[in-house]
Amino acid sequence: MASTKEIEGATEQAGPADSAAPVDPADELDPWDAAEEAVEELKAALADVGLVLPSLGINASALMPWLVLVELGGARPDVVRGIAAAVKRGAGA
């Protein structure tokens, strides 16, 4: 049975596998810093395969300051297909 963890006013379900999960250093960062790092990592990975998401950025809500989201934005169909192909190659498909 899953237990419930409280995270700054939000409720998250935690299953048995959560206790064995490796700790991601980004989890230790301020949410804004973690989002900035994630954006830079994705920009670099996309650049490695010749792709750009022009609207990639950070979306922070004043109503939920603990929740900072990465906005992937819009992209042309050829860019989306390129991303899908890169993900498939990385997944060994």
Rank of each mutant, 00 (worst) to 15 (best):
S3I: 11
T4F: 11
K5W: 12
K5H: 12
E6K: 08
I7H: 15
G9T: 03
G9W: 03
A10S: 12
A10R: 15
E12K: 10
Q13R: 10
A14N: 08
P16Q: 07
A17K: 11
A17I: 10
A20C: 07
A21N: 07
V23K: 13
E28S: 13
D30K: 03
D30N: 10
P31S: 04
D33C: 04
D33M: 08
L42D: 00
L42N: 03
L42T: 04
K43V: 01
K43H: 05
L46T: 04
A47F: 03
D48F: 04
G50R: 03
L51N: 01
L51V: 05
V52H: 09
V52A: 09
L53R: 01
G57Y: 02
G57H: 01
I58D: 00
I58A: 02
N59D: 15
N59W: 13
S61Y: 04
A62N: 13
L63V: 11
W66R: 15
V70T: 08
E71W: 13
L72F: 15
G73A: 06
G73I: 05
G74P: 06
A75V: 04
R76L: 13
G82C: 02
A85I: 07
A85K: 09
A86L: 01
V87Q: 06
K88P: 03
A91T: 12
A91Q: 12
A93F: 09
